[in-house]
């Protein structure tokens, strides 16, 4: 651009240097992008290839004995823990998000918002330890599905609250005014108008929260324990297996079969996490 002022058609040394530096800068930026993109692709490919080669019918129909076998118990356990977490977290998270979006434009609202962000930032291991001393030891539930679910719920409630708030806020204020003008009560406006208009956003939040729960490990080790056996339906006093535990422990065993199970479990977890995150992003972008 600056060259248009140069009547001789030759660049000065300074300008040549600036252009060279800029070109080098762009190359470095592209390289930086590769530094983050290549590990992700390598990670996804490695797990896809190693995991897929371990897939078989047996993987989904039998449970593991610790070194080989299938992942049935772990798959069921992950489903129980994650869905259990959603059962606790959705009413609270959506309710809190609704409060923040509809009536939260005050001091209490900002305090809750701040503390909710703080809770999101608390390391999951600290939440796990809290649940360990209160639920597992304190209430005497021992390692159990209920303790694990509640711990996951504490983790995802602030996410749900925040995403619900953001999506409900996008509902036009005129819709609320129209409903109030027709004589609707607070509750009717909140549920029938605002929540139903903002429902896609709330579902998005619940899905993202599900992805977080499925991939979580550390707090579950302290609250859900581990079991090779299929969950019998007891909420307390019975440890429960889950996929992320398989990834963590089986990779450190000296058996090929155990490694294969670890990669298969990682592939299952990644499939859920990536499917939810990619799907949500594509749907949201299309709507906008």
């Amino acid at each position: 651009m600056s060259a248009t002022f140069d009547t001789k058609g030759k660049r000065s040394a300074l300008e040549t240097r600036r252009r060279a530096l800029s070109a080098a800068g762009w190359v470095l930026c592209g390289f930086a992008f590769l530094l983050i993109a290549v590990p992700l692709l390598d990670l996804v490919l490695t797990i896809a290839i190693k995991g897929a080669s371990a897939f078989s019918i047996k993987l989904f129909t039998t449970s593991s004995n610790g070194v080989k076998g299938g992942l049935l118990a772990a798959i069921v356990g992950t489903a129980v823990l994650s869905l259990g977490a959603l059962i606790f977290a959705v009413p609270i998270g959506v309710g809190a998000g609704m409060y923040l979006s509809e009536y939260g434009q005050n001091r209490l609202g900002s305090v809750i918002r701040f503390l909710s962000d703080t809770l999101t930032g608390v390391p999951s291991i600290v939440l796990g330890y809290f649940s360990y001393i209160t639920l597992v030891i304190g209430l005497g539930w021992q390692f159990s599905a209920l303790a694990g679910s509640i711990t996951l719920a504490i983790m995802i409630v602030p996410y749900l609250a925040r995403i619900t708030e953001l999506s409900l806020r996008r509902v036009p204020i005129t819709m609320r005014e129209a409903a109030y003008a027709l004589g609707a009560k607070d509750r009717t406006v909140a549920f029938k108008i605002v929540l139903s208009a903002g429902l896609p956003g709330v579902i998005t939040g619940a899905l993202l929260a599900l992805a977080i729960s499925v991939g979580e490990t550390a707090p579950l080790i302290q609250t859900a324990g581990w079991s090779n056996y299929l969950w019998t339906g007891k909420l307390t006093h019975e440890p429960i297996g889950y996929l992320t535990y398989v990834i963590w422990t089986f990779i450190n065993q000296p058996y090929k079969s155990a490694h294969a199970l670890a990669f298969a479990a990682a592939l299952l977890v990644m499939l859920v996490v990536l499917a939810i995150n990619i799907g949500v992003r594509i749907v949201l972008r299309r709507r906008i």
């Binding site: 983050i36 590990p39 992700l40 390598d42 990670l43 490695t46 797990i47 992805a211 499925v214 991939g215 979580e216 490990t217 550390a218 992320t244 990834i247 963590w248 990779i251 670890a262 990669f263 990682a266 977890v269 990644m270 996490v273 990536l274 995150n277 990619i278 992003r281």
Partner: peptide
């Protein structure tokens, strides 16, 4: 963004 959603235990495996 997807790098941020990879579960930490999967990063550990990798």
């Amino acid at each position: 963004e997807l790098v941020a959603v990879v579960p930490s235990v999967v990063f550990g495996l990798w």
